[in-house]
Structures are given as C-alpha cells and as structure tokens.
C-alpha cells in the first residue's frame, strides 16, 4: 500500500479546499442558512407541524442532505476533472499508485470536506431552529455514508466529463431535482397518489428519510431499508469506479 501516495493526494485536495474556503465552505453554509431563515423561521412559523415536528426542525436533516449531496458531487468531480483538464493527470497515471489508493485519496478528501460542511450547517441551524438528535451515532453514520457514496458518484462524473458544461450537467439536471423531490421539504405521505409511489424510486428519498429518522425517530421508509439503499448506491458506484480503472476508460489511451 502506497500510504505516502494516498496522503499526497489527500493533502493536495484538502489544500485546494483551504485555498478556496469562501466558495467551498462559506457559500454552502450561507445559502443553507437562508433556507432556514425563509422556510424555517419566516414561512415555517405559519405551517403546522409535520408528523408532530415543527416545520423548521423538520427540514433540518433534509437540507443538510441536499447540501452535502451537492457538495460531494461538485468537489469530487472537480477534483479529478481538474488534473484531466490541466494535463497534470500524467503524473497520477505514471505514479505507483493503485486504483484503490487513488480513490481513497480523492474521494476521501471530497467526503471529508462534505462531512465538515454538514457539521457546520448543523451547528448553524441551531441559531435559527430548535432540533433534537435522537440517535447521534446513526446521524454520523448516515452523514459519512452519504458523503462517501456521492463523492464516489462525483468522481465518476469527473472522469466521464470532457468539458466544464458536462461537469455541471448531472448535478444540475439530475441530482438537484432528485434532492428536491426526495422529501427534503416534506414527508412523502403528504404527496397524492401516485406520486407517493413514484417517490420511492428516488434514491435520495432513502438518504433523507434515514437521516431524518436519526434526528426525530420518524421516517418515510424503514431506517434499515434506508441504510441498505445507501450501501447499494455506494456499491454500484464502487463497481463503476473499478471498471473505469480496469479499462482505463477516459483516463488512458
């Protein structure tokens, strides 16, 4: 195991985040805070409770998920796209690092950053709304799993993308809608037939539901199902990454 190699990639990525702390940390925390103010405090005060939870508190887990999913995709995809774009990828390809080591370095760094942002938002939310966390260990587990799974997904997008437009395409056109429709702002039990069934095909629903369950003990789907779905999603991404490195797809000629 080339531990020095993993550390080099990981620290390289973390340094890049530190250099761009305004865009990469301050911006998502600020924009999520706006949601808390508008939906939580301003509008939320006129909305009844959802499943017995004040609306402002109800949206906290979903909003954190929405942000960490977007951030994981953006960071991980950009992290591997940039060396491709700049041509500096030659060094990675000629280095004695395995596929696993490369993924640990890039995806690990992106996931670390997303977890940090998630924690920052959680702390910031406290200023605006009152929430409780029933199962803190599960909260941490869902957060780390989601960040890792979507960083993996982002890594795939970064390797697939051959332009900055394509880099933005999937996060904007697919993931943001899925995240919004995944029960971030509502419980799917509030949806009319057949949309409550359709919603079950949305993978983000399971993440939001499981994460919210760890806060308040209420969920749209069973927490075990949520956990299983998160793992399935991660395994699919891992399989794709393994295939990419075996074939050299979009990396080697």
């Amino acid at each position: 195991m080339n531990l020095n190699g993993i550390r080099a990639i990981y620290m390289f990525e973390m340094n890049r985040f530190r250099r761009t702390i305004m865009q990469s940390v301050a911006a998502p925390v600020l924009s999520t805070s706006l949601y808390f103010i508008v939906f939580g405090s301003a509008i939320g005060s006129r909305i009844d409770t959802v499943e017995g939870i004040a609306y402002g508190a109800f949206i906290v887990p979903g909003l954190i998920m929405l942000t960490v999913i977007t951030e994981s995709l953006t960071n991980a995809s950009f992290g591997i796209y940039l060396p491709k774009f700049q041509g500096t990828i030659y060094e990675l390809l000629s280095a004695p690092v395995s596929a696993v080591e490369t993924v640990i370095g890039y995806v690990g760094a992106a996931a670390t950053k997303s977890v940090l942002i998630g924690c920052l938002i959680l702390a910031t939310a406290r200023i605006f709304v009152d929430y409780t966390i029933l199962h803190p260990l599960w909260t941490a587990a869902f957060l780390v799993l989601t960040c890792t799974a979507f960083s993996l997904f982002g890594f795939i997008i970064g390797i697939w993308a051959d332009s900055f437009q394509r880099l933005q395409l999937i996060p904007l056109m697919v993931v943001t809608p899925l995240a919004f429709l995944g029960g971030t702002f509502y419980s799917i039990t509030m949806l009319p037939e057949p949309w409550d069934t359709v919603a079950l095909f949305n993978p983000v629903l399971y993440l939001v539901s499981g994460f919210r369950w760890s806060f308040y003990g209420v969920a749209d789907v069973a927490p075990a199902v949520s956990l299983a779905m998160t793992f399935v999603f991660m395994l699919v991404c891992l399989a794709v990454v393994a295939w990419i490195f075996r074939t050299g797809w979009r990396l080697k000629s």
Partner: peptide
C-alpha cells in the same frame, strides 16, 4: 517522467508541488 507539454497546477506553490510528486511516488 517530464512531459512534453507544460502541465502544471497553476495555483500550487513550487515547493508543495515538488513535495506532492515525491509523496505520490511513495
């Protein structure tokens, strides 16, 4: 390997990028 094109990380510091290469190669 020294590539033909000037492939560099524009925003990295000189010393950091050399240390990075060393680590990457184990």
């Amino acid at each position: 390997l020294v590539p033909q094109e000037l492939h560099v990380d524009s925003f990295e510091r000189v010393m950091d990028t050399v240390a990075f290469s060393r680590g990457l190669f184990g």
